[in-house]
Every structure is written in C-alpha cells, then in structure tokens.
Design a protein around this nucleic acid. Sequence first.
DNA 1: GTGTAATGCTATTGG
DNA 2: AGCATTACAC
Length: 804
Amino acid sequence: MNNGSEYNVQNFLETLNPPQYSAATSTEGPMMIIAGAGSGKTKVITYRIAYLMQNGVDPFSILALTFTNKAAKEMKERIEKIVGSSKARNLWMGTFHSVFAKILRIEAEKLGFPTNFTIYDTDDSKSLIKSVIKDLKLDDKQYKPGLVYNRISAAKNNLISWRAYNGNDEIQLEDKASQKPQLGTIYKMYQQRLFQSSAMDFDDLLFNTNVLFRDFPEVLLKYQHKFKYVMVDEYQDTNFSQYVIVKKLAALNENICVVGDDAQSIYAFRGANIQNILNFRKDYPDLKVFKLEQNYRSTKIIVKAANSIISNNKQQLKKDVWTENDIGEKIDVIRAFTDNEEGQVVASSIFDTQMNAQAQHKDFAILYRTNAQSRAMEEALRRQNIPYKIYGGLSFYKRQEIKDLLAYCRLAINHQDEESLKRIINYPARGIGDTTMDKIAVAALTHNVPMWEVLNHPTQYQVGINQGAMTKLHDFAEMIKSFAAIANTHNAYDAGLHIAMQSGLTRELYNDKTPEGVNRYENIQELLNGMKEFTENDVDDLVVQEDENQNRLLRDYMQNIALLTDDNDDKDGDFNKVSLMTIHSAKGLEFPYVYIVGVEENLFPSQLSINSSDELEEERRLFYVAVTRAEKRATITFATSRYKFGTLNTCEQSRFISEIDPDCLNLKFGKSQTSSHQHDFFSDFDFNESKEGWGNQYKPREQAASRKPVYQPPAGKTTPKPAFTPPKNLTKLSSASVKSNNDIQGDDTRNLTAGQTIEHIRFGKGIVELVEGIYPNQKATINFEEAGKKQLILKFAKIKILNQ
DNA sequence: GTGTAATGCTATTGG
DNA sequence: AGCATTACAC
C-alpha cells in the first residue's frame, strides 16, 4: 500500500514548523490541535491526511468533517495536489450534513424513510411549521414560525426528541411561562408531517444519524470499522448532536483528531457548544494537545490588536499567538456621519490604496455584521466603478424561480413532498386556488394521509369539490407522474428541461418581459445549464460515486444540490473583485486589506447580545475573527447615524474599539486624529457627484428598476430578437429537446466576433472584445458602455448585433 | 379564482 | 425601505 514513489509527502512536511510537524505526523490516538488564527491550520490538516495515506492508510477509511462546502472543497484540492486526485477522491470529506445525508440514504429504510427522501431547507421547514400552526388553529402571532423553528432546532441539536420534549417538565414549564404551551404539540406534528412527506430538515440529518447509531449497533459498528481515522475541522463550532456522532464513530479506534480555535467560536446561536472543545480533555484523558501559535498571516500590529481584543473574554484556552511578520500599519478607525458616507469613505480608501500600493481589487474585503449593511457599500463601490462580489445573501438556490423548478423536480422524485406540492400546484396558475387547497389540506389531515394521496382520490377522501376542480387536480397529478416517468428513464438534464417546458414554468417566465422576469428566465437557463454540466461532466461527487447507473439521473442531481447553499463559481470568470460578506462567512478567509464596517453599539455588538455575557463574548470573538482576516492592514469604520426600518437612527461607536490596545490604533476623528492623513479620506466626498466622471458613470440600480418595469423592445433594428420560444408541445424527449435549447442561441450570436458592437437586453450597448469556445458553448467578453466588462454565455445571452 | 392595492411587519449571524 | 400578507375589486 505504501507507495512512496507516487507522491512524496516528506518534502511537504519539511515546510512545517516544529509544532505543525508534530501535529501532522502524529496519527494514533485522540488529539486536539488548537490552531490560532492564521497559524496554518488547513496546511496541517491536509498534510496530516497526506501523511496518513503515505503510511499506508486506505483513503476510504479516513473521514474528515468540515463545516462548509467551501472548506471541504479547498481541502480536497490541496490534498489532491499532494497525493493525486485518484486517491484523494476516495476520502470521505465533506460537511457534517453532506456526509451523514449520504449515510442516511444508504440506511434510510432502517428508519422507515425511502432512500430518495427529500431534504427540506429552512424555508420549507418554516412553511411547514406555519401550516402546522394553522392546522392546530393557533395564533401565528403568538407562535411565530421563525421562533418556533429555532426552538425545535435547538431541541434537535440537543438530541431532545418530540417525545422527550413533551415529557420534560422543565421544558413544559418554560414554554408555559413564555406563553407558548403548545410548542411541544407543534414539534410533534411537525415531525409527523416531515415523516409523512418523506422529508428531513437540516437538523434531522444529524438527529436521525444519532437515532441510527443508537438503535442499530451493527450499523454503528460498520462505520466504526470503516472510519479508522476521524478528523473534525472547526471543532469549536460543533453542537451536541454532532459531538455525539463524532464521539460514537471514534469510540472503537479512538483515532480522533479535532482541530479548532476556541477564540473563533461564533456559532453558539446555532447550537454550537464551546464546551465541546473546552472539555475535550475530559473525554479523552490521554489526549495529546498541539498548539499552533505562530501566525503567518498578519502584521504584528494586527496580531497584537487581536490579542488585546480577545483578552477581554473570560472563557478561553490559554494561547499566545505571535508573528515574525513586519510591524505593519496601524489600524485606522474612521468615523462617518451616515451609513452612505461610510460607504463612500471605504470606497475612496480602497481606490486610493489601489493607486498607492498597486493593490488589486481582490486584495480587499469589506466585512459587516449584518447582510443589510451591504447596500450602502455596494452603492459606493458602484459609484467608483470598483467591481465587487457579494458572498452570502440570497444564494442562487434560494431564488424564487429556481425553487419553483426544483419543486417540480422534487415532487417528481418524491410525490409525498408536501411543501413542493403546495408551492407549484397552482404556479403557473391552473385554477387550483386556495379554496380547493384548503379542502385538500383538511381531508389529508382528517384521514392522516399525504396530500398527494388525497389529490389522486378526491372522491374517496370526500373532498367536496366540483367536477371542474376534480379534472384540474387529475391533470396535475398525471403531469407529475409523467415527469416521474421521464426522470426515471432520462438523464438529469433531459428530464429537467422537459419539466421546465411542460410544467409551463418556462413559458410563464418567458412571457414576463419585465427586467426581473428576464432575469428569472435567465436563471432557469442557468439552472438547466448546471444540470447539463452535472449530466455530462465527470465531476467527482459523493453521491453519484456510489451509483451504478450509467445515466446521471435527476434524482442524483437533486441529492447533490440539496445541501448546496452557495454559488461560488463566478459565472463571469472575473475573480478580481472586492469581496463583500458578513464576518461569519469570512471565517477561514484572508485578505491583504480588510475593512470592518458598522462597528457601532447595538449593531456590533448586536443589540440582542448586550444583555448576556455569553453572547457578548461571542460577539467579541466575532470581532476577533474580523480583525484576524487582515494580512497587511485592517480598517475600522462606524457611522453616527444609520437608517433602520426606513428611519434614521443615531448611533455611537462600539465598545470593542476601546478594547483594542490604543498603540495599534490610528483614530481619524475627534481629538486624536492625525491630521496628515485625514484629508485623503474626506476630501473626496463632498457628495453629489463632485468626483470627476461620476455623473456619467453612475447609474443607480434603483433608478433603473424604478422606471416602468415593463420591457419595451425599441422599434426597428435595435429590437433584441426573441432568443427562444418555448415549444408549445414538447412531448417527446430526445436529442430534439436538447437541440431546442441550443437554439436559444440566436443566429445573431452564432456569428459573433470581436470588434462588433452589440446590444444586450439588460446591459445595453457594448463592444465584443473576445469570443471563446465552440458553438454552442461559446463565451464572449463584452465591454458594455454602462455595465462595464462582462462575460456572457452566448447560448443564453439575449443580444443583437448592431454593426460590425 | 385571479390580480392589484393597501397594510403591516421586520433586520442578527447560517448550513 | 422592502417584503409578505391581507383586503378588495374584477
């Protein structure tokens, strides 16, 4: 098994410092790696895995759990570089949710679930909770679905079943005291409805794994034998449910290695239990502990500032993070008077830094506490023509139209999926309104059967509806069944395209000529594109890997995207952009220049946290995470007034600013300002287009959107040619259906060459700079007069050639 | 049943 | 301000 000639880890190991080296080469027994920010944690984990494999450990027997898909992907890529992709492919590496979803699909029947169970996302779950509250005739103001969801989620994360919940006096008293005595009933009914829908929510993926391991010891034993080496990244963020899973899996071999940093625990609100890391030693008395304390990322100033911040927390493991890097610049603290001005300050500073320090867009990140703060930043960056990318926020898979098409697909695969059924049974409108649906819901509830069952036998379940409604229901059910048949016999892309067409979804969106409608239409194309890629490309993938089908089926596709939340693949291929994100999603990342904005009382720390010392400490750790993202320079800004719910509120600077060692700070306001630099930041924004060129360059998005939202094709030559008319009766699937999609690329774009002037339905006029790829998969880089440079997939782009 | 206007509620953080 | 729900007209 040892095959040193194929790869050589030893060379890589030589680049590690002594503690890193001992951690990476210590393979047996329980161990914990406490890794300070920027201490090369990922490097150690990847080298350790490579080292294991070099020493003959079968990659199939290594389980590495991460918290984000991004982290898993990055780690896998780094391991591939050392040991080669064929071996790295066999590692079990992924998020808790994806790994145990995979195991649950294999073992589903033991728990009474079908293999193709649906995974409900938060929206589905809340919607189901809402209908449960309605069915129980409870007041949804008293029982707000979001809060109920959090309560149920917390229970599951602590492995409290609905039975235990209802049988626990303490919990019952708590709920009575908070005027919500029926929470346990909602929990019970919610679980029953999930089961009836053959669905699990996110928390169930972990909860049910625990049930599986508890009730089926032989199954647990199987995986204990399989996973001889278990690693957990970001261990400080595990909740109780995850903790128990890991503990059980590792119980046989005790080759458990957890990696984390208690100072960066920022997910307690989601059930993470910092005690898991603080008490790890109690679980394993012969635990080996490794501390990585040398920071390779940041300047001395930043490390010192970060240390001074975290020293205000009481709960922490002793750790001394230090660096040999340069001293670096002090942290600028800048005050703005409004949130918009704060954006201007940041954008101007980025612009100046780019000029003075030869920095690129991608060297900058703007970090904020809440997503709502991105708006002011975006606007300011757009004014300065600085390209940016927002991470998080509304992800691709959460968009309305995407969820609509996916709901059809989900329903085709799992007819019991009630949330999908409710979502699309009358979209596009087919005359099945609230009245009919209410009747079906009542019948389903009375007879305790899934809605799908009622739908198929309205008479049997005494749904009092007329013949017209009956026919409509019948037609709908038949359509879904036909989708199911297609999905079983065709590949994911063919099936997806067929469903998009035949459901009427494509036509509905195509007929909507508002900019929003056009965008939705394009998003559907994009999703189909993704299905096509999935169908054709040899992606290495956890679920499909196990599948013996030649065809990549829709079922496989759905299982693979169910847990995807981010669409990180930059579609325009331009990676050189300023990054905007919440601090939470910035964990694990690093940037030369970091702006931490909105550092104000009641925002950061959040208003909701300031009455609890635990929560305040978590906010402080979050601030620590923010500062330690910076390599060269960190900048802190705050505003003295900010819009909230449409009204202006005054705010004051955060207590966290005064907790930083003053030696690290450069206060650019009030008495302590250093006047020499002040001008740089404040000269440029006397507001209202004082800066040269703004008047021409700046087109606020709102302005464009608030115009009459109806797209009026300009008369004559500039009329963008309708790119594609959905075939009215696409009944047969074959190469013909695939071809019809390719026809989306009009004749115009087929002959597109560099130098031509074109007009795009959304971006306006532009000049073609480059056309790459082979028809029908061509990509063009186009420089638009107003929108700037964009890369477009011609297949889907709605453009018209104006002249050569 | 469908579409639009008025109303009211909300914003931590996220897989 | 923006979004979701509700009220009301067709």
